[in-house]
Design a protein around this nucleic acid. Structure first.
Ligand SMILES: [Zn+2]
Ligand SMILES: [Zn+2]
Ligand SMILES: [Zn+2]
Ligand SMILES: [Zn+2]
Lengths: 137, 137
DNA sequence: ACAATATCTCTAGTGGCTGGAAGTCTAAGG
DNA sequence: CCTTAGACTTCCAGCCACTAGAGATATTGT
């Protein structure tokens, strides 16, 4: 049995975050020691590692909750799990595309200042006027 | 003179957001009508457009505050403005790099499920075990 | 036995808004 | 001039996914 600190060290998830996940229903309410401290087993360790990994991949708590619910039903079709992963991929791709547009504009804005004072700073002027931008962002 | 609604329509910034910016000190406390409603002029319109544009480019409220403070001192060197823009560019590039790593892993995870049930779903298995991942993310 | 460390619960704060409730003001139509 | 619809006011709560702190209790090591 692990204490919450042991679990934290083994998974890299901070102690208050573990408690938060319990509160959010991602982890079941843990067993307790005589003195009311949480005690976890291998199963909980694995589930927390799953949560950690999914969070690292950017999935929301809500998606993770769905995936955990699903994984309790090994015989069901996995279409929902696949859908969640694909949606996450699509959302990551959207964010990349958006950030790339930003990157382009910021390059134009940030790397071209030849001014010396605020009065003729390219950065300030470019920020003041979106019409100078090459794209909508 | 514009009402807050006029200003909102002209800049595309929602009414509560304009009030929020005032509260955060990005906009000076506006003049008021006899009945205590905010009234804005051209100057405030321009400043709000600046804020909107900077937010669209991903700058934080704090950075925008600095830029506004700077732009009140036309004779100062613009190194700080340039630094803020460059830092933002660097941060956008970091996020892109991070998201691309995620994209790679998610492609591997999301596009390769040939299973039919949750029990043999590639998505669930891949999320359960980061050792199967090609990169740290 | 005692000190040091870990854990407990509870509350509040982060950033950047967004929404709602309840009350007040303004502008246009009659 | 009066009505009334709509816009405006303030204040407070909620979003996400934590993070930090206070003050009390439990466990661990010497
Ligand atoms: Zn400059
Ligand atoms: Zn622009
Ligand atoms: Zn599958
Ligand atoms: Zn991984």
């Amino acid at each position: 049995m692990f204490s919450i600190g042991d679990l934290s060290r083994r998974t890299g998830v901070k102690v208050p975050t573990i408690r938060y996940y319990e509160q959010m229903g991602l982890l079941e309410a843990a067993e307790r020691s005589e003195g009311n401290q949480r005690r976890f087993g291998k199963r909980e360790l694995e589930r927390l590692a799953f949560i950690r990994h999914a969070r690292d991949l950017g999935l929301t708590i809500e998606s993770i909750r769905e995936l955990i619910d699903l994984s309790g039903h090994a015989e069901k079709p996995c279409a929902d799990a696949d859908r969640i992963a694909k949606e996450q991929l699509a959302s990551v791709r959207d964010r990349i595309a958006q950030l790339k547009r930003l990157e382009k504009e910021l390059e134009r804005i940030a790397l071209c200042c030849t001014g010396e004072t605020v009065g003729d700073c390219h950065v300030i002027r470019a920020l003041s006027n979106h019409a100078l931008c090459a794209t909508d962002h």
